[in-house]
Design a protein around this nucleic acid. Structure first.
Lengths: 154, 154
DNA sequence: CGCACCCCGACAAGACTGGTCGGAATTCCA
DNA sequence: TGGAATTCCGACCAGTCTTGTCGGGGTGCG
């Protein structure tokens, strides 16, 4: 299980846009953003397309056009960005890659499904709790504080 | 982000073995297990191979041979099974698919890495908290109890 | 000895990832 | 009015991963 470059690049792009001014300031061209962040330009364009369709960023067409965040960075979470760039955060096998029609039908008593549901909830809760603002101060990031090893008792 | 059939089948297989007796009982042949669970036989064999190498199951060769769980089902977690079948639970991009040597070097101050580290910990904690025994009683599964929506404050 | 079974590497079709390309539409500016 | 800059968008493509299959070799029971 891993994060693809879709999400990784989307985050880099979103953070970049969060740093460059807000709505008022001039929009950032995809090309320029890609150069500064040293990412493949054409790919960045594709990604911005997805982010726009998901409502994470907005765009201005024509010369002097470009992109900017659609909302305040504090109101956009990593979960939002990931859900925009991939089609979801955590894909539920039972729905999209069912092992077996019988076994995976929502009515059947599958012993495994609750595990994936629980996992999905954990992932969404966590990613949904990290706003972009959390990523603007470079070093610390979200809770690398003590937090030794509580036994996952929720 | 999703779970592959490697893990899904591994769980089905592990649960099956947990239900069929323990060390004392006669081992279960891969072929038979595959038939009962309606999984592709050759594939099941591949998976059992991985599970054995990871120490989740043990095997008996020759006629009347087969597989059985290496440990008590209570001592094997979903995390163990997933780590055995895929090579890890959650792959850290920074290590295996670095965006950029500079950006992703462990010494550089990457704003994103802590998010993935936090996510990894959440995933491992949760999956590590679900033993196979939890999956033997079919219906309920792990905590589909109330648990409405605590704001991911760990 | 023969059968049942595990062991193991190679192969392969299809999907997904990580991009690239070419061109159309829109807007600014001289 | 005519570029030039820029977004918009679908098509394409190479490489990797997923999901298996196949064939043969080892091993032990009867």
């Amino acid at each position: 299980m891993r994060i693809t470059t879709w999400t990784e690049y989307s985050l880099i792009i979103s953070i970049h846009l969060a740093k460059r001014g807000r709505r008022g300031a001039s929009p950032v061209a995809a090309r320029e953003l890609a150069e500064v962040e040293r990412l493949p330009a054409d790919y960045v364009e594709q990604i911005l397309l997805r982010l726009r369709r998901a409502g994470i960023v907005e765009s201005v067409r024509g010369a002097k056009g470009g992109y900017f965040l659609a909302r305040e960075p504090g109101l956009i979470t990593v979960r939002d960005v990931m859900a925009a760039s991939e089609h979801q955060t955590f894909e539920m096998n039972c729905d999209t890659h069912p092992v077996d029609a019988d076994r995976c039908s929502p009515s059947s008593a599958c012993a495994i499904r609750p595990v994936w549901q629980g996992l999905q909830r954990r992932i969404d809760d966590f990613l949904g709790s990290v706003p972009l603002t959390e990523l603007l101060r470079d070093e610390p990031g979200p809770e690398l504080v003590p937090l030794t090893s509580s036994p996952a008792s929720s």
